[in-house]
Design a protein around this nucleic acid. Structure first.
Length: 225
DNA sequence: CCAGACGTTGTT
DNA sequence: GTCTGG
DNA sequence: CCAGACGTTGTT
DNA sequence: GTCTGG
């Protein structure tokens, strides 16, 4: 059994669910990420290859020297201003509603607009899941979701979290009956533009949000449980 | 003013 | 205990 | 995966 | 933190 078949067979998902809420990272080949994303310091220790909302996932962001670093973050963005209340005492309740961000409005939403200006990141992946199908690039080449990250502090506790942008589906994703898809970045030029701190206007970054050319993607049906 | 929201996709 | 929404 | 829900009638 | 609906 090939590694990816094992991943697909072992993940226990439900096939009716929607949203961009399940993807596959690398379990045994972080060096692929380092090569594909030009990482200068790799601090992250990989855990499971399957990620769902609230999983710890690797993100790539510029550090203070402008070099890219890979660090862990919780998938589900927690804004810096979030506070617990009697009605919503746990941050996980908020975070599990913030694992996708609409690219069309990401610069306007209170939860995302500050991170959009100054805290963009890459979320490395090899496959993403929609409607019972895994989508990937030829040879499972690593790519990145366009992501945002945030830092939340409360007393002694610090939480770093992230979210991924969504856009219209291309024909391939439409063909399985889904109405949105993640924004995919697939080459160094796109990575560099997305992480460029001098760009803060959504309009300038908008070309990155176009649905990926379906001719450059492949997919397969997840095995029945 | 002040309490309450601040989110997404898909489905009803 | 089991299902499901995120 | 895993946190959170899981129920009804009647009243506000 | 900031905006909006009441």
């Amino acid at each position: 059994m090939r590694g990816l078949d094992f991943v697909a067979a072992s993940c226990g998902h439900r096939y009716t669910s929607g949203m961009c809420h399940h993807y596959v990272g690398a379990k045994k080949h972080p060096e692929l990420y380092a090569g594909a994303f030009d990482i200068h310091s790799t601090l992250f220790e990989f855990t499971l290859p399957n990620y769902w909302p609230l999983s710890k996932v690797p993100i790539i962001r510029p550090n203070d020297n402008g070099e890219r670093e890979m660090v862990p973050a919780e998938w589900g963005l927690l804004p810096f201003w979030w506070k617990p209340t009697d009605k919503a005492p746990k941050r996980s309740g908020f975070q599990r509603k913030c694992f996708n961000a609409k690219s069309e409005e990401v610069d306007k939403k209170p939860s995302y607009r500050e991170a959009f200006k100054r805290r963009r990141c890459l979320m490395p992946a090899e496959e993403f899941f929609e409607k019972g199908h895994y989508f990937h690039l030829p040879d499972f080449t690593p790519f990145a979701f366009a992501g945002l990250w945030e830092r939340w502090r409360h007393g002694e506790e610090t939480v770093e979290s992230c979210t991924l942008l969504t856009t219209e589906p291309n024909e391939l994703v439409k063909s399985v009956g889904h109405h949105r898809m993640p924004v995919l970045l697939t080459n160094e030029e796109q990575y560099a533009q997305w992480l460029n701190p001098d760009i803060v206007e959504r309009k300038v970054l908008e070309p990155l949000f176009l649905p990926t050319d379906p001719a450059t993607m492949e997919f397969y049906k997840a095995p029945e449980k």
